[in-house]
Design a protein around this nucleic acid. Structure first.
Lengths: 328, 328
DNA sequence: CTGAAAGCGCTAACAG
DNA sequence: CTGTTAGCGCTTTCAG
């Protein structure tokens, strides 16, 4: 920077200002400085800037998986919203593992982010403590935790599934099943299953048709296998709700392979409103939790929090029931 | 850190060492220091560490889209490989836009990454210049550029599609079509189309059955629309190769909606070996470019480059032809 | 194995 | 609109 200053005939401080957006430098001076920087091949060093100004311009974000269209949409909403303020996202994935999440959170906090966004409301004790002491805005997403750490942008996974159960029961179907994954890892999946069971019980119906499809995330192939099991174990099932559209699509294909007509013989519903569910034949009934909106609302929240601290807020997103051909 | 040092009765320098992996501190001292840090709620400040040590422990990575299973797999391979050395990924997506890529690269270089990984071999002039002058390892992926900037881990998109064309022609099919996107944005898609056209010409066949499905990335729904157009414009088409499995799946569903039997009336192939293609009925023939391996090989390369600079290397991945029910 | 001194490259704070 | 001074919180370097 000193070299650029010399070349442009100004002080380093002026060079520093020229590289900021709205700081007061005359247009002519700024142009000369940027010209000199270009010629010298100077690249601004954020590291030093961050240390001195005590601002990293990072927002740390953890998601369970990077290879998931729902979370990818949330990250997209976030990063588009944060770009306006030139905030960069520090993205990490936990692989649906709370220990890994803890590791990531520790790494991220060392980078002094302006805010941190995590997926879900369940964390290791240590992770929770680190977030509580971080002295930056903390946002939990994709869930409505009972005891939030800070802010929340999410929805109730249990209630969303309840809406789907209600829909089936209203139409007179009573023998409903749920395909999901291992209860330990995916807390949102577990919440959805719990929502299924409670809703069934509230309708006075039995909720024993539960197929465990393995460790989350449940893939399309695992959904297909689970449907095979379901048809074998509970052949009288009238409708099945799957933990995601991916497993629901797998289940649908298994029916196609076995020539089990959907929705005539069995109805299928998913979760997440993934592309595949809108395009497949028949199209999948599903629940849209508005993942993109979760991201954009979180971004808005963070921006307003950086301007002025505010008491913890809970922004609830209302998922939408989408009925398509797979459920008549 | 000074506070922790005081609490532990040592100098700040010793605290600094205690937080590093293999630096020489007695076990007892380290334990006392970490204990003191925990009690005081001290969180190590990477920002200062980075500035002084001139190491950021970042690897910058740009991908066209975060919402794409193929690129997500590459990022996964990368981040797993880099975790061994505690390198964090600074991930950005370009939205298939070279201008956006340039913007990202500029932002990223200011953070002083240890290396930078970009997708594809086409960049704006300025982006290319920045990368050339960056004085860090540069890796271009998912392509085999004619004039690489630095290192390369990728494959020829054109040749991969040629293999699929050869397969169809060998089986006696001659009226082949290609469904792809707008030529400007997605250079890998364009390369695949070019590969299709050249291969057809080399076989002495006409390559006029080209359906433009819009701006990349081509969605499943766009694939479906494109199949509608294809059936209308070139009803005698025997087989269609799609720029990705997503569009291929969309095309397949359109055939199902129109009761056009696949593969009997028309055969379909995709690209990328996405999950959906393995599960759908019939399953999609496709090309597996080993996206995870692109990431892990890139990570290996970067690790070896950080140990000792080496002349530019081109690591070629050989895509695999996968034949399934959609192509008889 | 531990400590003291100096400084990484930028910008806050103040002055003009 | 521009400049001067001091220092962000670590770690390099050298010494013991």
């Amino acid at each position: 920077m000193a070299d650029v200053a010399k070349a442009a005939g100004v002080s380093p401080m002026t060079v520093s200002r020229a590289f900021k957006r709205d700081s007061s430098v005359s247009d002519a001076t700024r142009a000369a400085i940027l010209q000199a920087a270009e010629t010298l091949g100077y690249v601004f060093d954020s590291t030093a800037s961050n240390l001195r100004s005590q601002r990293s311009d990072f927002v740390a974000v953890t998601v369970p998986s990077i290879n998931n269209a729902n979370f990818a949409e949330t990250v997209r909403g976030l990063s588009e919203g944060l770009r306006a303020r030139d905030l960069q996202i520090l993205l990490g994935y936990t692989d649906y593992d709370m220990e890994e999440e803890e590791r990531l959170i520790e790494q991220f906090l060392r980078r002094r982010p302006e805010a941190i966004v995590v997926t879900g409301g369940r964390h290791t004790d240590r992770a929770r403590r680190m977030l509580e002491n971080a002295a930056i805005p903390v946002v939990e997403t994709w869930d409505l935790p009972e005891d939030p750490i800070g802010h929340v942008v999410g929805f109730s996974n249990a209630d969303a599934v309840r809406g789907m159960v209600d829909h089936f029961v209203r139409r007179g179907l009573t023998r409903l099943a749920f395909i999901g994954g291992d209860a330990q890892r995916d807390t949102r999946g577990t919440d959805r299953r719990r929502g299924f069971i409670r809703a069934m019980q509230d309708h006075g119906l039995e909720a024993h048709r539960l197929i465990d499809a393995g460790a989350p995330p449940i893939s399309m192939a695992e959904g297909a296998m689970a449907m095979g099991l379901l048809l074998a174990r509970f052949p009288d099932t009238q409708a099945v709700i799957c933990v995601s559209d991916l497993s629901a699509f797998g289940a649908l294909t298994e029916c196609q392979r076995r020539a089990v007509p959907v929705p005539e013989r069995i109805e299928i519903a998913g979760f997440g409103d993934y592309d595949v569910g809108a395009v497949c034949v028949p199209a999948l009934s599903t629940i849209n939790p508005f993942p993109r909106q979760i991201g954009s609302r979180t971004a808005e929240l963070i921006l307003s929090l950086l301007d002025a601290p505010q008491p913890p807020r809970v922004i609830e997103i209302t998922p939408e029931l989408i009925l398509r051909g797979s459920s008549a």
